[in-house]
């Protein structure tokens, strides 16, 4: 069985890679969003050990 460029396997693999790429991009965006929310929170403060060095 020759694996031509248009083989169904390639389509399936492309779909999986695209899906994974989108999930990872979404995950990065979510972590970024969470970070922004946490650091802009009124309760947020820099830990004293780091704060003393600055």
């Amino acid at each position: 069985m020759a694996l031509s460029r248009q083989h169904e396997l390639h389509k399936r693999r492309f779909g999986r890679n695209l899906g994974l790429g989108l999930v990872l991009a979404g995950f990065v965006a979510l972590v970024f969003g969470m970070t922004i929310v946490k650091v802009t929170n009124e309760d947020f403060s820099v830990p004293s050990s780091q704060g003393a060095g600055n």
């Binding site: 069985m1 396997l9 399936r12 693999r13 779909g15 999986r16 695209l18 899906g19 994974l20």
Partner: peptide, 16 residues
């Protein structure tokens, strides 16, 4: 890749 037995075939799984 196995083209004969669809039931026992282990191929590249799709995202779904």
């Amino acid at each position: 890749i196995n083209t004969t037995g669809a039931q026992t075939q282990i191929g590249d799984a799709g995202f779904g």
